[in-house]
Design a protein around this nucleic acid. Sequence first.
DNA 1: CTGGATCCCAATTGATACTG
DNA 2: CAGTATCAATTGGGATCCAG
Lengths: 123, 123
Amino acid sequence: MNSGKRVFHNNEDCPVRNVVAQIGDKWSLLILFALVDGPERFNALKSRIEGISQRMLTQTLRDLEREGYISRTVYPEVPVRVEYALTELGKGIVKPLYELVLWADKHQPTIERARKTYDKHKK
Amino acid sequence: MNSGKRVFHNNEDCPVRNVVAQIGDKWSLLILFALVDGPERFNALKSRIEGISQRMLTQTLRDLEREGYISRTVYPEVPVRVEYALTELGKGIVKPLYELVLWADKHQPTIERARKTYDKHKK
DNA sequence: CTGGATCCCAATTGATACTG
DNA sequence: CAGTATCAATTGGGATCCAG
């Protein structure tokens, strides 16, 4: 329907929207990739992901946990230790994400050039 | 170096950062996918991408143009017609993005379940 | 009329200070 | 250590205005 074109963009159940809503923010991808090498503690993540505030780290971790991408484990030691790790689902999404990153990395020079051309052309 | 772990997250030239900076926002993906079927005019995009404001559409189109993902062509008719289209680079990134969307679509039910479990568990 | 710029206000995000 | 609370700064939505 709709003159033969798949309309992907208008509905609540649009798969593109769902991707964007879940990981299309500034920090989710960084956090997921920060966990590929294994579980990390809160403050370890904070220092690995340069520029993130505790506020955003907490909030994004909660969101990712809610969607099922990561798990949160509290070890009741003193002082308390909280570890975040990728779930199976989280490990799963990292694969296509990694393809994307590889692509972007490969084409980075092209983009760099495009940017310069644009900036020079437009006053 | 760094105890054998690739450190991906701290630097300016981190490829993950570059991806996120370019398409990790609320609208870029939607716009790219709205153009896979062929060029579209400004207002056509605005109505296809439900919920976007002119402000954000203009701004995100400019950004995508700057990075080289889309082209902007002005046809000096009356009234003026402005068409946006994917460049070769834009068509290129859509492929890994599509993989990601397929993955997300496939695992949507799992995520849905995770969300419900989380919401029920946490008061 | 179409594409887009501007202004104002609400919503998000960020920087710290503080707490269990 | 792992957060929460608070307030400042940034960003986004929507109406309005403008050029061709």
